[in-house]
Design a protein around this nucleic acid. Sequence first.
DNA 1: TGGATGAATATTCAACGAATCGTTCATTCG
DNA 2: CGAATGAACGATTCGTTGAATATTCATCCA
Lengths: 218, 218
Amino acid sequence: MTEPDKTRHKIIAAAKSRIAHYGYTKTTMAELAQDCDMSPGNLYRYFSGKLDIAEAICRQSSAETAEELTKVAARPGRTAAQRFHDFLFEDLRTTFQRLENSLKLVEMAHIVATERPGFYQEGLCNERKVLRLILEMGNASGEFRVADTEFVAEMIQSATMKFSYPQLFTRLPLDRLERELQGVYEILIAGLRAGIHASDPAPELAPPGMRAQQRETA
Amino acid sequence: MTEPDKTRHKIIAAAKSRIAHYGYTKTTMAELAQDCDMSPGNLYRYFSGKLDIAEAICRQSSAETAEELTKVAARPGRTAAQRFHDFLFEDLRTTFQRLENSLKLVEMAHIVATERPGFYQEGLCNERKVLRLILEMGNASGEFRVADTEFVAEMIQSATMKFSYPQLFTRLPLDRLERELQGVYEILIAGLRAGIHASDPAPELAPPGMRAQQRETA
DNA sequence: TGGATGAATATTCAACGAATCGTTCATTCG
DNA sequence: CGAATGAACGATTCGTTGAATATTCATCCA
């Protein structure tokens, strides 16, 4: 690791520790600089701003999750359905655990996601790669019949959105969330097995592309 | 309709109109009282507070939606899959339309949902009744194989959460949302047809009830 | 006596000045 | 000469305060 890279990591570690303790808004660049034994100005040699430090922390954590999920998806001797199940629950548990470990880091993640919408998309995209892998394994083994894996992976992310950032949408405890996720899993897995083909919209009335403008209240 | 009920409705109508125009926080009880030709204090004979008036507006609108969805679910000459499709898209369109018609009423709904979490649950519960009806029709016709309709209805609501309050979670335009909903529908309908039985969790590793505490980062 | 009033009171809100913080850059250090 | 500093600047946040607003209640009307 090159010297400036070392410094970058030192800053990230110090920031993560301080922010986890005091929160993003309550940690100042001056304090962070002190933790790193440098001047505030010098931080800007390594990051172009405070938000970039927070983004780096998120990116690191996101990479860890992606790596873990990839590992989970590749466990030997599992069916594709089991891999899919492992994937969903590992994801829920790691994000939930992160939340419980430090509400402050969640607050930070929320700020980053708000101010840098692109970053959130990027994370979804990485996760989707693992999902596609699982779908393709299922197709190969004959368990699944998924034609467009990219599209179906996107839809799975839509359907499990409630579990991606549990703390943002609901205030349910982990066991309730797990029960719900189990239910959603069961429906999704039944669909994956039966196969997804763009069939059966709803012909005569209300075709998918139509806008409803004329109706008032009925 | 009894006399006090008439007054209640007059207040609700006036409040809805004013709030749609000026927003919840910007409409005062004094103004609302003037609109109704009464004193501010008298409003408290009919509603125990400002928030209760807002809740009444929401409840009315929610009842209209429920009625409309019930009607949609009961259209003659449709398959259960088509009814399910109609239901999902009608719901998305009406909520989206409400949003476009008046951002102010959405702001109000958001306040009510935040301050009165129970009310939101109640709405979900009403909607679930219609969902169950559709599932049962599908079971009767042999299209679906859903054992526990209450449970599956809940899971469908989890999986379509992203589309329930589009404005809250995402900023996607209607056509993007419809495309995503179509995809989620296709997976769900495949699952409903194949049948949902609480099968295939993931035996050896990571059983559903387990908490993950020991893992650090891997 | 049930229903409405509007003045009185408690709470919320918004504006503004003061202080803090993120960021920059001329200067110093090694 | 590259790397680091820390004082200076402008933007943002924060606490305070006074006005506006929700709510209550003693009083009045029909």
